[in-house]
Computed example of a mutant assay.
Amino acid sequence: MTSAPDAFWFVQADAKGEITDYGNVYSVDELLLQEEGTGRPVYACEELPNMQGFYVSGTEVLIRPTFDIEPAIDLTVGESLTLDGLPDRVTLTMDGETIELTGGELTLEPDMPAVYSLTFEAFPFMPCTTKVTVHAA
Rank of each mutant, 00 (worst) to 15 (best):
L33D: 09
Y43E: 10
D21E: 06
E35V: 01
Q34V: 14
I19L: 08
E18H: 03
N50C: 13
L31Y: 04
T20I: 06
E36I: 07
Q34H: 03
A13L: 01
G17F: 06
K16W: 05
A15I: 02
G37S: 13
T38H: 01
V42Y: 06
P49R: 14
Q12N: 04
T20E: 05
R40N: 14
D14L: 01
L32F: 07
Q34G: 01
G17V: 09
E18Y: 08
P49D: 15
G17I: 08
Q34W: 04
P49T: 14
K16N: 06
T38I: 01
A15H: 04
C45F: 12
K16P: 03
N24A: 10
E36L: 10
D21G: 02
G37M: 05
V42M: 08
V11C: 07
A44D: 07
E46C: 13
V25T: 10
G23R: 03
D29Y: 06
Q34N: 05
E30C: 01
L32P: 00
G39V: 07
E36M: 11
S27H: 07
S27T: 14
Y26V: 03
N24W: 08
L32K: 12
I19C: 06
E47Y: 02
E18S: 08
A44I: 14
N50K: 13
D14P: 00
V11S: 03
Q12V: 03
V42D: 04
Q12I: 06
D29E: 12
Q34L: 07
N50T: 15
L48W: 13
E18Q: 11
E46F: 14
T20M: 02
S27L: 07
Q34Y: 01
A44G: 15
V42P: 04
G23H: 08
A15P: 00
N24E: 13
A44L: 15
G39K: 12
G17S: 10
G37F: 02
D29W: 00
Y26S: 08
K16D: 12
E35L: 00
V25R: 03
E30V: 01
V28D: 13
E18K: 14
R40D: 09
E47S: 11
E30K: 05
I19M: 11
E36Y: 08
N50M: 11
E35D: 04
K16G: 01
P41K: 15
G37H: 02
E36Q: 13
L32I: 11
G23D: 02
E36F: 07
I19K: 11
A44R: 15
L33I: 04
Q34I: 10
G17Y: 05
L33R: 08
Y26H: 06
Y43C: 07
L48P: 05
N24K: 12
E47T: 04
R40V: 11
Y43K: 10
D21R: 02
L31I: 10
C45N: 14
E46M: 15
L48A: 14
N50P: 10
E18D: 12
D14V: 00
Y26R: 02
L48R: 13
P49E: 14
Y43V: 07
E30D: 11
